[in-house]
């Protein structure tokens, strides 16, 4: 479990509040999406969570241990892959990296070897375990970094942009693996990403930061539901657009977006289309995705 209470970081003489009274509680086995535009305060929050940065005020507890006062116990609960850095030694092999990071976490050599074998096999790297990580593809390097973060089987894992720069196949592997870690092993995963489709697919809960403050912290479904636009419908027709409608036709399919004040008005629109001989292919209420929600949240004052 991750508990963040009234976490604040103020920088310099100008008293810039990079993080302002942020509170979050992330339950065990949750994949938690921590989102925000650049400069929102995500990285600062993550660094305080990882014990790399001292908060001006507030508290972070990992698995019940205060990061500031019980650092050693808190770090034993935690593994991280940080964005923008290699995280592992490129001049060492995947095996050597895992052995080092496992022992650094205080595990005995035999235990680390056992765990490293499982992780490398799961990630499809076992055959290349003795190759230097520097010679790996970006996706393979990222897999080694993730394995290093998980080598001591920590109950809490921070993954900062884990799929950034990965190809489709590697992204799929990493996503499946994150889901499996949380659902089957009960690992709490804090995921930060700008790839909102990844966040939407993986996260049980999402928080959005803007200008150092949380502007949303809700289960993903609930967050999406709050932004559902009850008055917008998408009508798809076979063939060309009928006259009198604002429509887009592409590859033989016409799409019409209609906005109504009462859902019953949709019947009238459909009736008008039928009268003009249009062939209805589908009629759906427009559902926002996480990108729509995110853009709405970061461009307006707090919503949740």
């Amino acid at each position: 479990m991750i508990e963040i209470d009234a976490l604040t970081k103020v920088y310099g003489a100008a008293q810039v509040r990079a993080v302002d009274e942020v509170s979050l509680h992330v339950g065990t086995g949750t994949v938690f999406g921590f989102l925000g535009p650049n400069g929102a305060g995500k990285t600062t929050t993550i660094k305080m969570l990882a014990g790399l940065l001292t908060p001006t005020s507030g508290q972070v507890r990992l698995g019940g241990f205060d990061v500031a006062r019980q650092r050693s116990a808190a770090m034993a609960q935690f593994g991280a892959v940080l964005e923008g850095s290699r995280n592992v030694y490129w001049s060492l092999s995947a095996w050597q990296n895992l052995m080092y990071f496992g022992r650094l976490k205080g595990l005995r050599k035999a235990r680390v070897a056992e765990r490293a074998q499982d992780l490398l096999t799961d990630l499809g790297l076992w055959e290349r375990r003795h190759d230097k990580v520097g010679g790996f593809s970006r996706g393979m390097q990222q897999k080694v970094a993730i394995a290093a973060a998980l080598i001591a089987d920590p109950p809490i894992v921070l993954l900062d942009e884990p799929t950034l720069g990965l190809d489709v196949e590697a992204t799929r592997t990493v996503k499946n693996w994150i889901a499996e870690q949380a659902r089957e092993l009960g690992t709490t995963i804090l995921l930060t990403t700008h790839q909102l489709d990844v966040a939407q697919e993986l996260c049980d809960r999402v928080a959005v930061m803007r200008q150092g403050r949380l502007v949303a912290d809700l289960p993903t479904r609930e967050l999406l539901a709050r932004f559902r636009e009850r008055d917008r419908y998408e009508i798809r027709l076979e063939g060309a657009a009928p006259p009198g409608f604002d429509a887009v036709t592409r590859e033989g399919v016409t799409t019409i977006n209609v906005r109504v004040s009462d859902p019953r008005e949709v019947y009238d629109v459909v009736e008008r289309l039928r009268a003009q001989g249009a062939v209805l292919e589908s009629l759906t209420q427009v559902q926002p995705d996480l990108e729509d929600v995110f853009l709405a949240l970061v461009s307006e004052p707090s919503h949740a």
Partner: peptide, 18 residues
Amino acid sequence: RAGTFAQSQMSPAPPWLP
């Protein structure tokens, strides 16, 4: 530069030990 210094500090070991 590589970020492994920060990684080595996110361990239960006291910072002076590495």
